[in-house]
Design a protein around this nucleic acid. Structure first.
Lengths: 136, 136
DNA sequence: AAGGTAAATCGTAATCATTATTATTAGAAA
DNA sequence: TTTCTAATAATAATGATTACGATTTACCTT
């Protein structure tokens, strides 16, 4: 996902182009790490001192619902990052030091074909945590 | 994990036997679902109207650190349940309706033997969410 | 270009889960 | 029983997130 794609999706769904929205998206486009609402606010208040939490959270919710951002919960806080480009389902290794991620092409659900008959599976979560080569 | 085991561990580590502690453990022993701090408090305040959050959270932290309870994050809230009896590493299916769990004997890390060389893996999370046969 | 309208934002307060603080109570060892 | 210390109660503080009324802005229409 890049800036252009994101704006196409937003426009298609009737969302207006605002400078705040654009800067939030730019921050994600230039950062492969997972970021919190506070991370965003801290950076953005340099350019827009009046930026409020409401604006940040409202836009994050919009972006997630449109599939522009993906979200996960790390140590009790919601974290966001650009939706991956790769078109096939995958999971993530997340570095607990620098926050960078690495795609894991394997999905454990592939092995569980008939392991849960009678169960209705809605979704699943698989994440690996540790240190990336640079941080080790 | 059962009550007796839990108390053995607590005693071995110098923790005192109190009625609050015992009731918290009994609630977990009789409920296979994941519970929140609020779930516990709501039930326990019937017997102990003066029960406070501090007591609940402090004991939850103790129990988790001693391996009596296990913890996971579900929709932004910390949830707890008795540590499973099974001695070998596994994961969980969690019913989003009734909260009951089912053990999944497969671990995706088994498939990732040399998939992450140079990475230091600290831990991982694999959970499946959906509806159990009774709730479907 | 000007005006109208709904969306977006601001400023701030409220809420919810969790943690911290201080005084008091209660296990359990001597 | 006395004493020591862990455990608890009551309450306040914190931090993330959500809500709300007032204001501003994007953008559509004329």
């Amino acid at each position: 996902m890049n800036l252009t794609n994101a704006w196409n999706i937003l426009k298609d769904n009737g969302f207006k182009e605002t400078s705040k929205r654009n800067q939030i998206l730019e921050l994600f486009a230039n950062d492969e790490r997972y970021l919190t609402a506070r991370d965003l606010l801290d950076v953005m208040q340099k350019d827009y001192p009046s930026m409020s939490y409401d604006t940040v959270y409202r836009n994050l919710a919009t972006f997630v619902s449109l599939g522009i951002l993906e979200e996960t919960e790390l140590s009790g806080e919601r974290h966001f990052r650009m939706q991956c480009e790769s078109d096939h389902h995958h999971h993530h290794f997340i570095c607990m030091d620098c926050g960078k991620i690495k795609e894991i092409p394997v999905c454990p659900m592939d092995m569980l074909g008939a392991a849960l008959p009678a169960y209705e599976i809605a979704n699943h979560k698989f994440e690996i945590y540790g240190k990336c080569p640079e941080c080790k």
